[in-house]
Amino acid sequence: MPELFVSAFITLFVVIDPPGCAPIYAGLTKNATNAQARNMALRATAIAAVILLIFAFFGEALLSALHIELDSFRIAGGLMLFWIAFEMVFEKRTQRRTERADKISANPEVEDVSVFPMAMPMLAGPGAIAAVMLLMNEADTAAQTLEVFAALGLVLAITAIALMAAGPLIRLLGDKVEAVITRLLGVLLAALAAQYVLDGLRGAFGIDV
């Protein structure tokens, strides 16, 4: 299996975090019908895909317009991903997502949660955007670019399935199992984030760290 595909899949899966988004989505759509919940899940995933693809194609041009070097973005993106990993390990990210979801669900006027908060910022948040841009920079050939897109497509497909099966999935896994999975993924993401920072330091300072 191509190395970049594996790295991209793991990174995007951990950052987007389908197992972590599923219980939040289940709570947001508890009063919706099965058809409504399914449609919102598909719509949220599609909108997130469009947002991430825009940054995948035009993110580097945006950095150039702002006079930001890619190595600087690698370091900043790695630190951002490391912070996400820290919050995952200590359950801060899940707590914040739950609080945001509670505020949305407490408002009876809010019915469609596909755009906010699901597509943005839960699925296509700053961490996912940074990860996509970093991975696109790692792709040196057209084949490697396709690997990144394939990994993104697979993660988003898994996310859509997880959201549509959110209710049964939560009953199957339980809160404790979901917490263990989130923490394990957080540790893995921390290692990947550290690698991004090291790559950025090598490129920016020409040192071997």
Rank of each mutant, 00 (worst) to 15 (best):
M1G: 15
P2A: 03
S7G: 08
I10Q: 12
V14S: 05
V14Q: 07
P18E: 03
C21E: 07
P23Q: 06
P23C: 05
I24M: 01
G27M: 10
T29E: 03
T29D: 05
T33W: 15
N34S: 14
Q36I: 10
L42Q: 06
R43H: 09
A44Q: 01
I47V: 10
A49S: 14
A56F: 11
G59M: 02
L62A: 14
L63T: 07
A65D: 03
A65Y: 11
E69R: 14
S72Y: 00
R74Y: 02
R74F: 02
R74W: 06
A76T: 02
F82L: 14
I84W: 04
K92E: 15
R93Q: 13
R100I: 12
R100S: 12
I104D: 03
S105C: 09
N107S: 12
V110Q: 14
V110R: 15
S114E: 01
A119L: 03
M122L: 14
L123D: 00
A131V: 04
A131C: 07
L134Y: 03
N137Q: 12
N137P: 13
E138W: 11
E138S: 04
A139V: 07
A143R: 07
A143F: 08
T145R: 09
T145G: 11
L146R: 01
V148L: 06
L152G: 03
L152E: 09
G153W: 02
L154E: 01
V155K: 04
L156Q: 09
A157I: 11
T159S: 05
I161G: 08
M164A: 12
A165T: 14
A166M: 12
I170C: 07
L173H: 13
D175T: 15
V177E: 04
A179W: 00
A191I: 15
A194K: 07
A194V: 13
A194G: 05
A194S: 09
Y196A: 08
V197G: 02
G200C: 03
F205N: 08
